Simulated assay, not measured.
Amino acid sequence: MVFKKLLGALGVGGPAVDTVLSTPVVQPGGVLQGQVNLTGGTVEADIAGITLTLVARVEIEHEEGESTGLYPFARYSVTPPLHLAPGENRSIPFAFPVPYETPITAIAGQHLTGMALGVRTEVDISGALDKGDSDPLGVEPLPVQRRLLDAFLALGFRFRSADLEAGHIRGTAQSLPFYQEIEFAAAPQYAHACNSVEVTFLTTADRVDVILEADKRGGMFHSGRDVIKHHTVEHSAANQDLTSLVDGWIRSAL
């Protein structure tokens, strides 16, 4: 993955910046690596700093309805102030951790519809900040997250969509300003009781908190409603078949 931009907005003859990700696909809590390549323009440049920002497309609910916007959720400085001479070439390597709550964008190489994450390069030249464009970033699930998703598929749930919602889930230790919802259509054995199930992972270095939201069907004497349940799974559970565990979660919610 490569991002190239001539920083013309910061002055004629400005430097060119080429950000290369050597790990364009990572896992939550993993390390993003690459290098920022600088090429001096026709004039010298004093660069106050270069920052890489992780951004995500997030859905925002408001009184007028719903809209989408880019949310920055992690920032890393990759270089102290430096002076770049005309025509000078310089490469700046970087390596920094991705937050454990970083949402998943793909499973086994298959992109999740609705997900968009990127790495934005910000260059500060003489106090003028150029944010440029974002380099796409792929995030594969951690082993225990993959086990849980496999369990839903094994039970007959069908993947519908995934999105990011701005806000905080009550009663959790969520750290990012948004959370991911992975929606599944109900498996046949649960279809009489619910329409769909949404899964949210709030992951730390020690465990994964799983929030299930079941769209429970109404009956003759009651209306339909959402049922929300919280569960916790250790990373070591990645070595187990979690199908029966997830089945128990669903039956308890319904």
Rank of each mutant, 00 (worst) to 15 (best):
K5N: 07
A191T: 06
L117S: 02
E140D: 02
T51Y: 03
G156R: 05
D124P: 09
L70T: 10
M1Q: 08
V31T: 14
R90F: 07
A9W: 15
K216G: 02
T232H: 11
A85T: 11
P86H: 07
G138W: 03
G65P: 01
V227E: 05
G224Q: 08
S161P: 05
G132S: 03
A16E: 06
N195T: 07
K131W: 04
D133N: 04
G218D: 02
G13K: 04
V25K: 04
L153C: 13
S175Y: 00
A166N: 02
S126V: 10
E183M: 12
F221Q: 13
K229C: 11
N89S: 15
V58I: 05
A116N: 15
P81I: 05
Q35Y: 06
G118D: 02
D150L: 05
L164S: 12
E61M: 04
A9H: 15
V20T: 13
R146D: 10
G65A: 04
E165F: 11
R217M: 01
E44T: 03
G41Q: 03
M220T: 08
P80E: 12
K216E: 06
V144M: 08
G40K: 01
I125K: 03
L212R: 01
D163K: 09
N239C: 07
E63H: 12
T53D: 10
D241L: 07
G30K: 03
T113H: 08
R147S: 11
Q180L: 03
Y76P: 10
G11W: 13
D124L: 14
I104Y: 06
A16H: 04
T232G: 10
G65I: 01
P86S: 01
V210D: 09
F157A: 00
V98W: 01
E165D: 14
E198P: 02
A116D: 13
P103Q: 00
Q27Y: 06
T203C: 03
P80D: 10
P103C: 01
P97N: 10
G171M: 12
H231F: 11
L155Q: 01
K131V: 14
L212F: 06
A173S: 15
L21W: 00
L202R: 01
Q33F: 07
V2L: 14
D150Q: 14
L38H: 04
H83L: 12
Y76W: 15
R170F: 08
D135F: 02
G11A: 06
